[in-house]
Amino acid sequence: MDSQTILILAQDGLTNGAIYVLLSVALILVFGVTRVVLIPQGEFVSYGALTLASMQLGAMPGTVWLLLIMAGIAAIMETYRLLSSGAGRELPRVLAMTLVPPVAIAALVKICIPMHLALGWQVLLAILIVTPLGPLVYRVAFRPLADASVLVLLIAAVATHFVLVGLGLLFFGAEGVRTPPFSDAQLTFGTLTVSGQSLWVYATSFVFISFLAWFFSRTLYGKALRAVAFNRNGARLVGISPHLAGTVTFAFAAAIGCLSGVLIGPITTLYYDSGFLIGLKGFVGAIVGGMASYPLAAAGAFMVGFLESFSSFWLSGYKDVIVFTIIIPILLWRSLSSIHYEEEE
């Protein structure tokens, strides 16, 4: 293997790693705040790319229908909850908050699709469609289970993953898509050629991570989310609603997933179920970070990216075997190095 190949593989690893970093950060965030192991994270990735691809073809993306259906279910659940707890007065306000944004987004998409907007606008639209799916998934599947054990939440997460994959197939079909790159440029540095899309991935990932770092350390809402992750009971006592925190976190997760989808859409062909494996690679990173440490998780995510690109060169068929088997030594290392504590449920 010559240095040229190494550079190319390293570049691939870095690109994929940057995506996995985004995903692993979202997974840790969701786990910390809601204790949900977000197995369906990957579906947001698929949905992002597939939504964008539909719009490219001038079709109404299936995710818009999903958005409306989920909003309808959430509205029914809210109505039931409010009426049975005797808080019917709040019903109009809550229903408006649940239904108006999804309907407005659907209308906006309907208007925009025939206009064949520039790629940037379509990406924004895709994010606008997929992001509210996060809070809706939280509302419908997880919020009623807020007091359940991690185990029950995990089973619910897997069930949600099944539903979203099935719906992905229903709405988008089994065809794979490749979305257009943000940039066709090929930059040459000496012997190294870097694609414009890779640069977009690095830059977006960097900007987004910086934004998250700023949000969590500098804004009170960000601190409030961290507070919920550290001490749920204490957070309630200062008036931070765990449901609000869950809603916001799931919105972040969906947005990050969608963004990842549109970023790698031009690099690999994505199918309705491809997101799952991509999301799980984010998990490998998150596990390196013990589902708690962001910097360690980021390091883990890059490791996964590099491992993947280099193993695809040597042992292409065994790429996924290697990436997922690495979790065993990682867990061994964690179990030997971390302080064990009993989880009393």
């Binding site: 991690v150 799980l280 998990f283 867990l331 964690r334």
Partner: peptide
């Protein structure tokens, strides 16, 4: 099994896939 309850299922997901 010495670590938190969610590590076993995550490990079995990974090993199942590989």
């Amino acid at each position: 099994l010495r670590m938190g309850g969610h590590y076993l299922p995550l490990a079995t997901i990974a090993w199942g896939i590989s």
